[in-house]
Simulated assay, not measured.
Amino acid sequence: MINNEFLETLNSLLSRVPEKERQEMLYDYQEHFEIGCADGRSEKELAEELGDPNVIARELLADYLISKAETDQTATNMFRAIFAAISLSFFNIVFIVGPVAALLGTYLALCVTSIALTLSPLGIIASSLMGYSTETFAFSFFVSLTLVSSGLLMSIGMIYVGKYFYYLILRYIKFNLRMVKGDKAG
């Protein structure tokens, strides 16, 4: 009876995971009970050995969401993985949210800068056409060309930096998750 209660609790806590993946996760725990009972151990002893199903479900859900973020690289999946890792302990809030917020803030600032550089020639050309500038049109044109080029190059670079930040944040979350679980190997 304890076996069924443990697995039902774990199954309900993992309801956000698709059925196929959830059954794969639960299989190991079912097998643990079957092997343990075959060795003459009680279901209560086996359940206590496994631990709290709530903690197990949070760890399994965090692992699932991190692997999903690795395969389907979207911002939504990344934030789900971050929040799943944070849910493992209050301690994680400081060590995940702080660095992620710093990286995200830096990235967004650089993106805004690249957009501003790309669009700034519109202001230069408009001001020279309206007579607010004393520079020659040729000078304004070349300054505008330089700013657009810099902005476009920086925008292209930000695409690659964004992909690298995604990878970096994901690795950091996985490292932090291993630390919370107490795993020694990376």
Rank of each mutant, 00 (worst) to 15 (best):
I115P: 02
R80K: 10
R22Q: 03
F141W: 09
G162K: 09
I159L: 12
I159T: 09
A138P: 01
G157D: 02
V148M: 10
A116E: 14
L61W: 06
F139L: 14
S128D: 13
Y172H: 11
I124P: 07
R178K: 11
T74K: 04
A138F: 15
I93E: 05
F165C: 10
L13A: 06
S150V: 00
L117K: 03
T106M: 14
P53Q: 08
V180R: 11
I124D: 07
I56T: 11
V17K: 00
I115L: 14
F91P: 02
V161D: 04
S140I: 03
C37Q: 12
P18Y: 09
L153V: 10
R178P: 06
G151P: 00
R22A: 03
S149R: 02
M154C: 04
N54K: 15
M154L: 15
V112M: 11
I93V: 12
L46T: 14
L13K: 12
N54F: 15
K20A: 13
T106E: 03
T118D: 05
G157M: 04
Y29P: 02
S114H: 05
Y132N: 06
L13M: 10
A126I: 07
L7D: 10
K20S: 12
I173Q: 01
D28M: 04
S15M: 12
S149L: 08
A185T: 15
A62W: 09
E49M: 09
P121Q: 03
S144F: 08
G131T: 03
L46V: 07
T134N: 06
R41F: 10
M25W: 02
T71V: 14
E31W: 13
V55C: 06
I2W: 01
M179C: 14
V180M: 09
L129K: 13
E45W: 08
Y160W: 03
I93F: 14
F83M: 05
V17S: 00
F142G: 02
L50P: 05
